[in-house]
Nucleic acid binder design. Structure first.
Lengths: 195, 195, 195, 195
DNA sequence: AATGAATGAGTATTCATTCAT
DNA sequence: CATGAATGAATACTCATTCAT
């Protein structure tokens, strides 16, 4: 039986409570960056966030809920930027790639760790919807540039682009000329299959 | 200070012991496939391997050592196949891709979990050497097919190919026409950068 | 490389926690008395202290830390008494000896076990300082009584006195006339070397 | 119920077996020297002795038996020397002290560790007898030199002498002039109590 | 006899979570 | 609300001892 996603325990109404929640989620992010999924634990998160373990459990029913909140936070921020680009310059592949790069390079290890975490996480409806919207926006941008293409090809292109960015984020590839490299990998593939 | 990898404790001398070691490593592999890095623990490994926890620790000094052994096992098997291909038909990109696909599809979740695990693992010299040799063999095959190219471009191509295979292994992309898709992604990129 | 002593994990803030720490250290003391260094283990300590194993590890990072805390507790108590004597009646050798005897006889097996434990323990700076201060105070008392003497001779005298007390504590020597015996052993030596 | 002392499992009849037993006991001695009572364990003893764990258990029924054998070995060697001295120059206090010093300084950490171990050990009749004989021989030598004295006073003197030697063995006291120091401590006490 | 593979009870330690203050 | 003390099941790892070969 798939465990249902848990909602945050109480919606923080006061300003201070919002700050507390943010601190907790950010602490979790930092720990993921440093040690990956295996090293995160609630006591440590509380300590790093500067709150007591009791307070942490006031807002999040369990460890997973914190990670889910973090995933949402990251998605939301990426999505917002993507929406802006899509609205303003709907054919700007380069811009989108640059954004993704910035997003990834901002916190490459965090992005990687979250990708791993998600495989075990029970995301809530909201987060799932976000994921889909990100995929759609990306696809639309590619279509605007390369013409109508099969869904699978578009997805493949996205996967390729992300892989190159990730590799650079992890230090496997140099950061210089990364934008070109990503654009080349994506367009190389799409032009070939459209051919 | 990068923690040095602990040596295997005791080299198994009798046939029975060799089988025991293999069983332990294979049990670890199965657990990784089912639950990922977070769910692996020595007691479980021992139980699944059908040996006592004491036996496990006779041969592996700690949890990490088991994972290192598993990485080596996987590398070795891939490397052997690659060597055969490189020796017999040195220009056969398709063959290499097919091999990689088979390797990955044999146990896709295992491959993914190991990739994650490696980011925290302290591989020994042997395993590191294998990684390098795999990269070199792959690069050579690409050069034989696409002509001399910058090291970074070759690496990028390998990363792209692996990403597409991985995505299919995780079920994000369909398995049908995967060989073509991988070849397209790799050649699309390389032809583009070769100009 | 001498392993640094791990710091106490968390300073107890509430009265309850202070009591818990005391209970843990006292439980360790009791176990040492009964079975010596070889028989002490954290689970047993927790059980005897009437706390869960988790609670124990909240305050002490490992087994050694508990023993270090115990050494400090014992030192502190002895030191306090010594300071009082040194301040009030600085020539009173007999008083000092009596105090040491009381200290030792209060819990002879504990004192013996701790002496053994210390050979393997990594004492922190504080505990080391205490040891030195105890030696200094003892020496001063001897000097006040026997006149200026070489540091080594004073130390020898202290060692002799302690050995006689210890032997009595372990039951090798009778408790009767112990005060005289100790004073005789110490003064016999010092008078001899003073010539 | 006081555990009965266990006899060696089988008396080694062949030359090789004798060597094996000696190697085992000596390995135990070395480990005690390095890490004290807490660090000795049968697997390690076997390894250091260069025999398999199975072989070790052929000759000694359990861990304690090895330690008992070691105690006997040490006692025997000391006793033999003492007997020679007592027979040849029965008033030679200095010689006896020198012997004890040599014995102790030969392997000071071993002597200390064994003293600790004995408190938990179940010595056999033979070893107990040896202990008594050592005490008697020492007393006789003291009597020959200082005249008839109470048993307790003699014992006290022995304890004092041993304490000073031990302290030097542990590095607390300098090795230079140790013979004089020991003689002074012992004679200082005995002359005092004889009045 | 000797070997070394295997056992499992025992011990060390962590960490998600609850609850009294 | 916030705190931090306390819990204990889960996990990591050790070591005395047995047994098949």
């Amino acid at each position: 039986m798939p465990k249902a996603p848990r909602e945050p325990r109480k919606t923080p109404r006061q300003r201070r409570a919002v700050a507390t929640c943010a601190a907790i989620v950010e602490a979790a992010a930092r720990i993921l960056e440093e040690g990956g999924v295996v090293s995160i634990n609630t006591n440590l998160v509380a300590e790093r966030a500067g709150v007591s373990i009791g307070t942490l459990y006031q807002y999040y029913p369990d460890k997973e809920a914190i990670l889910v909140a973090l995933v949402r936070r990251e998605r939301e921020s990426l999505l917002e930027s993507l929406r802006t680009i899509a609205a303003n310059s709907p054919t700007a592949l380069e811009e989108m790639v640059e954004l993704s790069i910035r997003h990834q390079f901002g916190r490459p290890r965090l992005a990687a760790a979250l990708e791993v975490a998600e495989t075990t996480l029970h995301l809530d409806a909201e987060a799932t919807k976000m994921t889909r919207e990100i995929a759609e926006l990306s696809s639309e941008l590619l279509v605007a540039r390369f013409g109508q293409l099969d869904r699978v090809e578009l997805l493949t292109a996205v996967i390729i682009g992300r892989a190159v960015i990730n590799a650079a984020g992890e230090g496997q590839l140099p950061e210089t000329a990364l934008l070109d490299r990503v654009v080349n990998s994506v367009s190389g593939y799409l032009e070939k299959v459209r051919g």
